[in-house]
Amino acid sequence: MGAVKPVYVELDIRSDMEKLWERTQSPDLHKQWDLRFTEIRYLPKTADEPQRFRYTTRIGFGLRIEGTGETAGTINTEDGTRTSVLRFGSDSPLSLIREGGGFWRYIPHDSKVTFMTRYDYKTRFGFTGRLIDRIAFRPLIGWATAWSFDRLRLWLEKGIPPATSLQRWLVHYGIAALLAALWLYQGIVPKLVAPWAGELDWLRATGLFNGSERETLAVLGVLEAAFGILVLIRSRDRTIHALACVGLMALAVPALVANPQLWAAPLSPIVLNTAMIGLHGTAAAMSSDLPSARNCRRKPQQTKRTGGEAHDVHL
């Protein structure tokens, strides 16, 4: 296998330097926004020693990974740029990371600070560990770093606490996943797999399709299933949710006209469509100001930046 690239994340944050510095360098504040860590605490030190720290990451089922690190140095330049160099490692048998290092850099501008990180690490478990890292772990930890940077941005720019950002993100994408599953089920099962269970009779009762009800139902099923996938991948697009609400009403009204008894039927499609409209409205209302890894740059810019190139700290 060829060499893998270090993790790199960069984001412009509308904040002054001191606030950003405090929320990234203070352990109690850092652990609030960084998805990678559950706990960070400084270890005692003397005046001439680098600051050492211990970190903990809970991975579920009562398991956790612990590691240690140290601030290897902090560099300040005349233009106000700051660079904090870190070393870290873990002796935990559950940790894929054995040791690593990197930096955080803060480049001030008139109304914002460019906040960036670059880090790399060595893995354990030999070839298997390197393969897992390349295929899954490195993309995941890179995404978590970028997502966390954007959560920090929302905290500084919008005043949204990190815990609230996480809750809103989970609720939004949980609703989106549920809606996608409902659209897929309604498109595949009653329309494509088991049309005889009732959907075909309903379509015939409308009298609109003159013997082509089966084909029409199949087309509707494919469209609903495709729309379910679209809801999942474009859940933050309010236009998608608006179209869904229109479509659900367009499906419910003819069904009720063709069979007025549906309003009182058990598991009425009228009730289901109304509930889905409510969920789409909730997902649309919660689609703004959610943290997203896509807001970050994942490669160093080619042009030279104030404070030096993004890759001029060697690990």
Score class of each variant (00 low, 15 high):
Phe127Tyr: 03
Phe127Val: 15
Thr56Gly: 13
Leu232Ser: 14
Phe88Thr: 08
Pro162Leu: 09
Gln261Lys: 11
Leu63Asn: 13
Leu256Glu: 10
Val193Thr: 02
Asn259Gln: 11
Pro300Cys: 00
Ala163Phe: 13
Arg298Val: 06
Glu39Pro: 07
Leu267Trp: 15
Leu223His: 02
Trp169Phe: 06
Glu99Arg: 10
Ala255Trp: 03
Thr77Asn: 09
Ala194Tyr: 08
Pro93Thr: 07
His172Arg: 02
Gly102Arg: 05
Asn210Tyr: 08
Val9Ala: 07
Ala258Tyr: 04
Ser111Asp: 15
Ala284Ser: 08
Arg52Cys: 04
Ala205Tyr: 02
Asp79Trp: 02
Glu39Gly: 11
Arg54His: 10
Ile107Tyr: 04
Asn295Tyr: 13
Phe125Lys: 07
Gly211Tyr: 14
Glu199Phe: 12
Phe115Cys: 04
Met249Tyr: 11
Arg41Lys: 12
Ile75Lys: 11
Leu94Met: 15
Pro266Arg: 09
Ser95Pro: 05
Ala180Tyr: 06
Arg236Gln: 08
Leu279Met: 14
Phe149Ile: 00
Leu178Gln: 03
Ala72Phe: 09
Gly126Ala: 10
Thr206Ala: 14
Leu96His: 15
Ser287Leu: 09
Leu223Cys: 09
Leu178Gly: 05
Gly80Phe: 12
Tyr55Pro: 01
Gly102Asp: 03
Arg118Lys: 05
Leu267Ala: 11
Phe115Lys: 01
Glu49Thr: 04
Ile270Cys: 13
Ser148Phe: 01
Lys122Met: 08
Lys299Gln: 12
Leu152Asn: 05
Leu208Pro: 05
Thr68Asp: 05
Ser212Val: 04
Leu94Ala: 14
Gly102Ser: 10
Phe103Ala: 12
Ala146Phe: 03
Leu86Ile: 03
Pro44Glu: 14
Ser84Val: 12
Ala255Lys: 09
Ile188Trp: 12
Ala264Leu: 15
Glu39Val: 06
Thr282Ser: 12
Ser95Leu: 12
Asp28Gly: 03
Trp147Pro: 01
Ser288Lys: 07
Asp34Val: 01
Trp147Gly: 01
Arg214Trp: 08
Phe61Gly: 13
Arg87Asp: 15
Val193Trp: 13
Thr128Glu: 04
Pro300Glu: 01
Leu248Cys: 02
Arg52Asn: 07
Gly174Asn: 01
Asp289Leu: 11
Ala194Ser: 12
Asp150Cys: 06
Leu279Ile: 00
Arg234Gln: 07
Gly174Phe: 00
Ile97Leu: 06
Ala180His: 02
Ser26Lys: 09
Pro27Lys: 02
Pro6Glu: 00
Ala226Asn: 02
Gly60Ile: 02
Gly159Leu: 09
Ser95Met: 07
Trp33Phe: 10
Thr282Val: 13
Gly308Gln: 05
Pro6Trp: 01
Ser287Lys: 03
Phe125Trp: 14
Ile40Ala: 00
Trp263Thr: 11
Ala144Phe: 13
Phe137Val: 13
Ser235Trp: 07
Asn295Glu: 10
Leu140Asn: 10
Pro108Cys: 11
Trp263Arg: 10
Ala144Glu: 11
Gln261Tyr: 10
Cys245Leu: 02
Lys122Phe: 13
Leu230Thr: 12
Ala218Pro: 04
Leu154Met: 08
Ala265Asn: 08
Gly100Pro: 13
Asp48Asn: 05
Lys45Tyr: 09
Leu179Pro: 04
Thr239Lys: 14
Lys158Ser: 13
Lys304Trp: 06
Leu131Gly: 08
Trp147Asn: 13
Glu157Gln: 11
Thr46His: 14
Ala242Val: 03
Ile277His: 00
Gly102Val: 00
Val189Arg: 10
Leu192Met: 15
Pro254Glu: 09
Phe209Trp: 05
Ala258Asn: 03
